[in-house]
Design a protein around this nucleic acid. Structure first.
Length: 751
DNA sequence: TCTTAAAGGGTTTTT
DNA sequence: CCCTTTAAGA
């Protein structure tokens, strides 16, 4: 099996004991090396149970598992993500961190819901302090292993800003609520395990021994918590093998520390280092462009990528008029390559920086009848109907789960409104019991209406019945839930397109449950099913054999490869993303560059970057600026667009301003053609629409707002439909800002 | 209490 | 553009 391996690859495969660092450039056969190494270890009589292999996604785990299986059949090696590993470990040791083994795993929606609820209780304005932003900060803290107490203490000791003050209050409350609900979020999975290992030396030693061989893929994307876990499992038996490529670190925003891989050699001084720099994937052209791009990063260890592959076609930059033109042309080109050159659909992938860019592409592919799959497994589990049904299962599995309880107690509606819920919640916390038990004893709750009491008790009874029905088959339980709750009843039978879609989602969830029942055989557990649902990732659902074009974000593309790759919207503010440009932080900009590098190096034979002259951002057309990255690599520019575009692209920075100004003037001229005030004819036609066009505001103008009354325009920013107007109203000193494109403001009296 | 409509606000990337 | 929150009406 060590045949057709290079010398370096063989070195890595044959390395037996002791720490090993594999610095693997893109397409260097890394996965082969890891699987080969696992197989080799087993050949050398290492028990499969002693090997722990950690991958970045479930999909990668499945693939590695099947490759190992092929090399050495019939030996189960545990392969999975950090999160899955931690969940599994925690199930057995939950009490040690104050949980029970049937804990729930909260997704982002659940987290937001919980924080919203907490803000309510803490009497903090959720509009000004958005739950997502608070959660972002909490997640950041957790990634750096900073507990709620640590955070609050640190805030006390230093000068924090407003937002931090809020987080310092919410974080502890959030953590307490999770504990009470017997629930964890994604970050907790890791953090609890770190705590566990830190506080139980005996357990740590036991696990270190149990997992004598640890392999971690994509090590450049591990965060502090993951780093601690790996370290803790490699003290007495430092047979830790990590693989990665600093140039492919793209999760800094999620707390990943590129330093983890850079300091491996000082962490394990006896470490053996293997460099895999030969590329077996891409053509010389593709590699040259990618290499030239990444060389612009300053924070970087130099590395040379080489390949014996053919020269291949140059990397092309395709220029289009707008997003629609771009999508249409790509779809047409793919169809043509399929029909005329005998390409398979699955040879193609289209990558984008942000998910919102996928819509246009999907439409175009459908128009050209090109089959495609979109990497969005997560989106399925985020659908309201799917979340609702899963929430039922979660309450059955973990009756303490109050987030799920709140979600479903009135879904479908059963007359349990806000008032009832507040009364119930207050009473429950006074009595120190859970919401579900409180519901069962609703008759004891003061001031509830008879109707509410009846509904709550019926609900509690129903959940109890479900618990009894939880016997061996998740699918059967789920069916019971759908029936008993009459969940789908409200949709009728296919009244609207949306209803059909929802029904299909419920069906799909049922199918997933049946599949789980079968796959898990005698190990069917409700928490097992729920865990899979919670930890599913967006690329998990992709099937390389599906015979479809693959659409995904650049982040999801990591670790994959395709013969032909289209990388769309290589434009300033998209790639690099505007957020990375705002602070002017070099680190963030370099991560964007790595992101493009990752995307480019997925391509085997043909690589196309695209950009457009205009692009719709939030539904409004904006003219674009070519990405700075484009000037950092050799490219063949293909521009079939109209001359206006050519002109634009060839224009360099000094002219950009005047161009923008010219555009501004044009748009302003268009505005002038629309009457400032409504004409009598428009009024007669009676449509609100004609009155609605709010254009041409000027500072000092008096306007009327349907709710706030009369006011004066104090400032106008931007122009045309994408500007804003600031109005100060006469009553109660209110100052408000409106979008020019749709606001209920009407000019009064003046012109 | 529920349904509907309109206002307002916010948007990277994901386990 | 899409999502959520809020207000009004049933």
């Amino acid at each position: 099996m060590t045949d057709n391996l290079t010398r370096h690859q063989r070195d890595a495969v044959e390395h037996a004991e002791g720490p090993l660092l594999i610095l693997a450039g893109p397409g260097s056969g890394k996965t082969r090396v890891i699987t080969g190494r696992i197989a080799r270890l087993i050949e050398r009589d290492v028990s499969p149970a002693e090997i722990l292999a950690i991958t970045f996604t479930n999909k990668a785990a499945r693939e590695m598992q099947s490759r190992v299986e092929r090399l050495i059949p019939g030996r189960g090696v545990w392969v999975g993500t950090f999160h899955r590993f931690c969940a599994r470990l925690l199930r057995g040791r939950a009490q040690a961190v104050g949980l029970q083994s049937n804990f729930s795993i909260l997704g982002t929606t659940d987290q937001r819901q919980l924080v919203r609820h907490l803000l309510d209780e803490l009497d903090i304005d959720a509009v000004h302090y958005s739950p997502s932003r608070i959660l972002n900060r909490i997640s950041q803290a957790k990634n750096d292993l900073q507990s709620a107490e640590d955070f609050a203490r640190q805030f006390e000791e230093s000068i924090g800003d407003h937002h931090q003050a809020i987080v310092a209050r919410v974080y502890p409350a959030y953590q307490e609520a999770l504990l009470k609900s017997n629930a964890v979020d994604f970050d907790d999975l890791l953090m609890h395990v770190v705590t566990l290992l830190r506080e139980n030396p005996a357990l740590r030693a036991q696990l270190d021994k149990r997992f004598r061989f640890v392999l971690v893929d994509e090590y450049q994307d591990t965060n502090s918590a993951q780093y601690q876990i790996v370290r803790a499992l490699s003290v007495d038996h430092p047979n830790v093998c990590v693989t990665g490529d600093p140039d492919q670190s793209i999760y800094g925003w999620r707390g990943a520390k590129i330093d983890n891989i850079l300091r491996f050699e000082s962490d394990y001084p006896q470490a053996k280092v293997v460099r895999l720099e030969a590329n077996f994937r891409s053509t010389k052209s593709i590699l040259r462009s990618a290499d030239s791009l990444i060389a612009h990063n300053q924070y970087r260890k130099k590395k040379s990528l080489t390949t014996d592959n053919a020269e291949g076609a140059p990397v092309r930059l395709l220029c289009f008029q707008d997003g629609r033109d771009e999508a249409d042309s790509i779809a047409r080109a793919i169809r043509q390559a399929h029909d005329e050159d005998g390409r398979k659909w699955s040879d193609f992938a289209i990558f984008f920086r942000v998910n919102s860019l996928s819509r246009e592409l999907e439409l175009a592919l459908s128009r050209h009848r090109v089959p495609y799959q979109l990497a969005q497994g997560v989106a399925f589990y985020e659908r309201a109907e799917v979340k609702d049904l899963l929430a039922y299962l979660r309450v059955v599995c973990n009756p303490a789960d109050e987030v799920s309880f709140r979600r479903i107690v009135n879904k479908p509606t059963r007359g349990i409104g806000q008032k009832t819920r507040t009364l119930l919640g207050d009473w429950a916390s006074r009595e120190r019991i859970g919401l579900l038990e409180a519901a069962a004893r609703a008759d004891e709750v003061p001031r509830l209406t008879a109707r509410a009491v009846k509904s709550l008790q019926a609900f509690a009874r129903m959940i109890r019945d479900f618990s009894l029905a939880d016997a061996g088959s998740v699918a059967a339980l789920l069916e019971t839930v759908v029936e008993r709750t009459r969940y789908a009843a409200a949709w009728g039978d296919g009244a609207s397109e949306q209803d059909v879609q929802r029904m299909a989602n419920v069906e799909e969830l049922l199918a997933t449950a049946r599949y789980y029942d079968e796959a898990a055989e005698d190990e069917v557990t409700l928490e097992g099913f729920l865990e899979s649902a919670s930890l599913a990732s967006d690329v998990d659902g992709l099937d390389a054999e599906a015979g479809e074009v693959t659409l995904m974000t650049l982040h999801s593309a990591k670790g994959l490869e395709f013969p032909v790759v289209y990388l769309v919207a290589v434009e300033q503010n998209i790639l690099p993303h505007e957020r990375s440009l705002r602070q002017g932080e070099l680190r963030e900009l370099e991560e964007e560059r790595r992101l493009l590098f990752v995307g480019m190096t997925r391509a085997e034979e043909e690589l196309y970057l695209t950009q457009t002259a205009k692009r719709n951002i939030h539904g409004r057309p904006l003219s674009t600026i070519p990405s700075d990255f484009l000037s950092e690599m050799p490219l063949q520019i293909v521009d079939d667009g109209p001359s206006e575009f050519e002109e634009k692209f060839s224009i360099k920075t000094p002219d950009r301003r005047s161009r923008l100004d010219a555009l501004k003037n044009r748009m302003a001229a268009t505005d002038a053609e629309i009457p400032l005030l409504t004409t009598a004819a428009n009024l007669l036609s009676g449509s609100a629409e004609s009155v609605k066009l709010p254009t041409g505001f000027a500072v000092g103008m008096t306007v009327r707002h349907p709710r706030y009354g009369l006011g004066t325009v104090t400032e106008v920013r931007g122009f045309s439909k994408r500007g804003t107007v600031e109005v100060s109203f006469e009553d109660d000193d209110r100052v408000a800002t409106f979008d020019l494109s749709r606001c209920p403001l009407q000019p009064v009296g003046t012109r």
